[in-house]
Simulated scan of single mutants.
Amino acid sequence: MPRCKLTPRIVSTASADGKSKVDLFDTEVPGLLLKVLASGRKRYYTRQRGDDGKTRERKLADARVVSLNQARDLARQRLASAFVPAPCEPAPTLQAFTTDQLLPYLRSYKRSVRTDEILLRRHILPRFGDQRMDQIDRYDIQRWVQDLAATYRPATVNRNLIILRYAYNLARRWEVAGVTDNPTSQIAQLKTDNKIERFLSAEELQRLLAALEGKQNPHLAGIVSMLALTGARCSEVLHARWADIDLLRGAWRIPQPKATERRYVPLSSAMIELLQSLESCQHSAYLFPNPRTGRPFTSIYNGWNRARHEAGLPEVRLHDLRHSFASFLVNSGHSLYEVQKLLGHTKIKTTERYAHLSNERLLEASNDVGRLISSASPNQQEPRP
């Protein structure tokens, strides 16, 4: 790596001396070099180390076109410009980032993106949409959380906060201009109590099914019965297809459940009898098609709401049938692992909130412990003959 003060004579007489190339570094302008090739061609280059520690060479000019003095002037301009910080591109507004990047990404993989769109439109963008992402600070977000908490439940507030936090995490991961911090990082979620204790007894379920008979929707009783017999989600039952039902093996394949993996639900004998009684297999791809459209129902709330009031169970929700399914299993002595598999949960912690034990079973378990301790007590007297 020869270093010398380049002169017009050295530039004109330099040769590669049998090598493929020779680099001559100018000592007057550090970073300027003359590259002499074996073919005799000569070019000026600049070489400098970047902020990442890597050294980069860039072609400056052909030695036949510019003089040495001109090459030095050009090199000084280029090397000096490397130390002038480039003008910072302003951060996008949250509205622009959401429209151009966040939502297209969420739609590409997330099935519940519709809920995110609603929360963004109703709660997040009206408050922060017109602000640049680097101008939204923690104080603004904390005040927003407090305002939401005054009207909405903690779970709803936390869902909004999670979406906003995710938006900033993505912006930083994608190196969006101007976004260097996540202002939601120090904002704690609100405490929630989502433990739902309501589940139906066998008598309540029979009363509810009786109230469903003869309703305007001919499939309502079958839909509710399938929810109770399988513990499936309402959307899974409404979109169930005959092509996914295997009556011989007693299995129902759910192609795209909430966890995005297909799973198989075993069909009990009562469930198979219900399926065999359905007439939709003769004319529809769906188990419970809407008679007017032939497509799955978008909502069965009206008929369900009338039936639950007639049954004297106005507080019972459709999703409580899923809670009840898990409770029936646990109260019958089945393990949480079995309940987890039947409900399609990936985490046992999720299953635990559905596994409500009845007071009778808890009392039975407590009595078992009492009998065990009594039988092992050394003070217990032998029975008299």
Rank of each mutant, 00 (worst) to 15 (best):
R198E: 09
L238H: 08
R3N: 12
W304P: 03
I196L: 06
E89D: 11
S327D: 10
R78M: 12
R127M: 06
E236F: 03
W252G: 00
N169G: 12
A285F: 08
M1K: 05
S108A: 15
R322H: 06
F97P: 09
V145W: 03
W252A: 01
V330K: 01
P255N: 03
E204M: 05
Q142T: 14
R263V: 10
L79C: 03
G333P: 05
R295D: 13
V65K: 13
L24D: 08
K215R: 15
V157P: 00
A75F: 07
A171S: 09
D320C: 00
P257A: 13
R159C: 02
Y337G: 04
L343Q: 04
R138G: 15
S20N: 11
E197Y: 08
Y354N: 05
T7Q: 04
L37M: 14
T27I: 07
A376V: 08
L170I: 13
W304Q: 07
Q186P: 04
L248Q: 15
D181A: 12
N158I: 01
M133K: 04
P289N: 09
C234K: 14
Y105I: 07
R122F: 06
R317H: 13
T46C: 14
G333W: 06
T293G: 07
N302G: 11
R308S: 07
P92C: 07
R111P: 05
L208H: 01
D320F: 00
L60F: 02
P2Q: 13
N305S: 15
K258L: 04
L329P: 01
I136C: 07
R76P: 06
A232K: 01
L94R: 07
M226P: 01
N302F: 12
A91P: 00
G18Q: 09
T351L: 01
Y301G: 04
P154M: 01
A270Q: 15
L37K: 13
L32F: 06
V157S: 00
T151V: 13
L200Q: 02
R76N: 10
E364L: 10
G312Q: 07
F288S: 07
D51G: 15
N194M: 05
A82D: 15
A210E: 14
I272G: 00
L362A: 12
N331V: 04
V339Q: 00
A221N: 13
L212D: 05
P378K: 04
Q380N: 14
I300W: 01
R132M: 07
A82E: 15
A14S: 14
P154L: 03
H309M: 09
A80G: 11
